[in-house]
Structure formats: C-alpha cells, structure tokens
C-alpha cells in the first residue's frame, strides 16, 4: 500500500484501451488566459467547477514555465521567479507524467497553449499537438465568423478533433 505516489504505475490503473480512447481531455488557452476550448472524453472525477479547473490548469502551466526557466543550467540569465518574461526568453517543457496521467503541452509564439491529458503510457505527442494546432487554424482561425479570443463553438472543428484524438495511441 502506497500513500505517496510512487514511481510505479498503480496496478489498479485501467490498461490503455485499444482503439484510441487514450485521451482524457484537452484545453486550449490564448495568451490572456481565456479558455478557448475545453473538451473531455474520459474524465470520471471532477473536483472543481469548470472555471476554477481552467484557471488552475493555466496557472500550473504558467508557473511550470517559470520554474523550468529558473532551473535551466544552460542559461546565465536568471531572474526572480514570477517575473514576466519577454517572448522568446526562457525555456519550456513538452510534457510530464504522473502515475495516473500524462500531460502534453505546446505553446505557439502567438501565445496559444494546447494541453492534452492522456493515459500515462502514451508516446511523444508533440507532433499530434502541432496537428491539432493545424486543425485549429483550418477550422477556427480561418472562419471569418469566429471572433478571436472567444470560446470555440464549432461543430466541424469538434468533429475533426474527436476523430483525430481517437486515432492517437
């Protein structure tokens, strides 16, 4: 019996299912912290209300980015934690995983952040995240009737996203 999360994946964890269904949820944020998209496929437990949940996720990413830069052994320039960074400064992380899930993260220079939470055994998702960014460009950004910075509510985009995410292994 372990009380503190060990490095072993807990035995009770459901094995990753065959045909996709590995993804739990996705978040897309813009630079202002507005959650443009939240979609879940498999999330049995919810502890917070949606808004708090989004804020927590955004805060986590923001702090982690700041931390990773602080710990960077290759860069001389050190600033205090939490000091605003200019674009292009600092470094970022691609993913982390815990014993129960894996979180993959991509940020574009335009400040769009895409977060995909999946089964811990999923492989490198950097390319799939770029693909999702492409979907976002094709179905959302190029839609003249979409107002930038507002939540995404487009059926075609959702369908394409669902379809693609289901194909991930």
């Amino acid at each position: 019996m372990q009380f503190f999360g060990g490095s072993e994946i807990s035995p009770s964890l459901p094995a990753s299912t065959a045909a996709g269904n590995n993804a739990h949820m996705i978040y897309v944020f813009n630079r202002n912290g507005v959650c443009l998209l939240y979609r879940e496929w498999n999330r049995p437990v919810r502890t917070l209300n949606a808004q708090q949940d989004h804020k927590l996720m955004f805060g986590l990413l923001f702090s982690l980015k700041s931390l990773t830069t602080k710990m960077d052994p290759t860069s001389l320039e050190k600033r205090n934690l939490g000091v605003p960074q200019l674009p292009g400064q600092g470094c970022s992380f691609h993913s982390f995983h815990t014993n129960t899930y894996k979180l993959s993260f991509m940020e574009t220079p335009s400040g769009i952040k895409i977060i995909l939470v999946t089964h811990p055994r999923t492989g490198d998702l950097r390319d799939p995240l770029k693909y999702i960014y492409n979907l976002y460009v094709e179905y959302v950004v190029k839609n003249p009737l979409y107002t930038p910075g507002t939540p995404i509510r487009f059926e075609l985009f959702n369908t394409a996203l669902d379809q693609y995410v289901r194909s991930l292994s």
Binding site: P109, K130, N134, V137
Partner: peptide
C-alpha cells in the same frame, strides 16, 4: 493579421525568433 499569424506559424513551423 491577428488571425493570419496563426496560419503562418502552423504552416511554416518556425519557432520563436531570438530578436
């Protein structure tokens, strides 16, 4: 411009510019 930048980034695959 504020929309086109995303298409540019997605298609060109350039990452952050240093300066």
């Amino acid at each position: 411009g504020i929309r086109l930048v995303d298409e540019f980034l997605a298609k060109s695959n350039v990452s952050r510019c240093v300066d």
